[in-house]
Design a protein around this nucleic acid. Sequence first.
DNA 1: GTGGTCTAGACCACC
DNA 2: GTGGTCTAGACCACA
Lengths: 128, 128, 128, 128
Amino acid sequence: MMEKFNSSQPIYQQIVEKVCRMIVRNDIQGGEKLPSVRDMAIKLGVNPNTVQRAYQELERQFVIETRRGQGSFVIDDDTKKETLRNELKTQYVSLFIKDMQEMGFTPEEIVRGVKEYLEPSVVTKGGK
Amino acid sequence: MMEKFNSSQPIYQQIVEKVCRMIVRNDIQGGEKLPSVRDMAIKLGVNPNTVQRAYQELERQFVIETRRGQGSFVIDDDTKKETLRNELKTQYVSLFIKDMQEMGFTPEEIVRGVKEYLEPSVVTKGGK
Amino acid sequence: MMEKFNSSQPIYQQIVEKVCRMIVRNDIQGGEKLPSVRDMAIKLGVNPNTVQRAYQELERQFVIETRRGQGSFVIDDDTKKETLRNELKTQYVSLFIKDMQEMGFTPEEIVRGVKEYLEPSVVTKGGK
Amino acid sequence: MMEKFNSSQPIYQQIVEKVCRMIVRNDIQGGEKLPSVRDMAIKLGVNPNTVQRAYQELERQFVIETRRGQGSFVIDDDTKKETLRNELKTQYVSLFIKDMQEMGFTPEEIVRGVKEYLEPSVVTKGGK
DNA sequence: GTGGTCTAGACCACC
DNA sequence: GTGGTCTAGACCACA
């Protein structure tokens, strides 16, 4: 498959995020087995060490669980998953808002812009 | 200075966006002269041709105006600037929302997340 | 082959026009594949970058469509082709008339001149 | 001044045409003296021999008259001037029509295109 | 000086 | 193989 990775961020971090996104989207179910380090490395076209490091990080964050001799499994805990979901949300939201504010957009403009984009037909008055 | 550029997007495109952002933020005033192609190239640590291409694209979008033998100047037109501002806003918002929806967040969650981040103290149940 | 190019106009522009003319003349059919950037470069005796730039411009004008790894293809859309035809017509006509008027010819003289040239036997007093 | 000349045509020919255009436009009056070969050469940034050849050609066509020790003068003959005017007209018209026909435009389209361009408001029915 | 074009040759991503 | 980007360095036109 050979993914494309940004050079501006460590590849292992990008793998971590990718797996998190897939879990949050339910592309991977709770309890499901992840591909082995070796398989994942081949699939992504990166060094197995890089995948290994990503899996370690995911385990440290209690996102996956590694069982010796069996493989790595997504934590089957809805509460944990909910937490992960929220973390991801906050992360993306904060990055977005940082960018927007850097460009000089006011909080009101940002909220309005998001609302308008989601419901283009609505005039979106009533803000505040 | 030597900027850092993503490998995932053409450098000339990143320069285009950078200049747009600076204009929208009023880091560069309308009518102001941009650094010459060569100077900008040195500043960014890229080839003059790459900057040239970025400037050309900016001119095609009526963001800058280039006068042969004199230099490139930011368009001095508040209407155009407002348009540019709105385009940038839409662009960033749509990218953000696409990402969020891909991760399975509902429109309500997205709006709430943004609002909460902007006014952390408010519980945001009734839109303030 | 080694074409001859005017020095008074960028080569890439001349290539753009050449391709447009060929499409309008039906020398190239809608949907047909153009020579690859490299082949065309050899054929015209210019650098591949120059052809690349021409093709890019043609794509920007929706005259061709380029599929990564496959090649560049003439847009297969008769409406678009008709538009292109009209644009070319206007372009040539306006250039011609500008030249004629610069030389001091009146509109009547221009029209008459064109008519006489097209139907040499007719005296063209009453528009036939 | 340093003019720009096409590489596709001999420079002396381009000078001939330029002078003809100026005469037809009445930029130069009948009987008026042209700059000396040397001055013209400097003005155009070309070799005096090139100008000399252009003046010879103009004299051959009875467009100018060279008087030993005095210089070159535009023929002061309205009939001749009218002829010149017609020759220029035919030349431009034929080139234009050749181009248009090469692109596949029919005589009707050509005439209509010219008329429409000259009087944009007119519907131009009634052709033939 | 300025921007604009062109060449030569490299490397990448996609198919 | 395809197109797309980038660099290095050259030359031109304009002012």
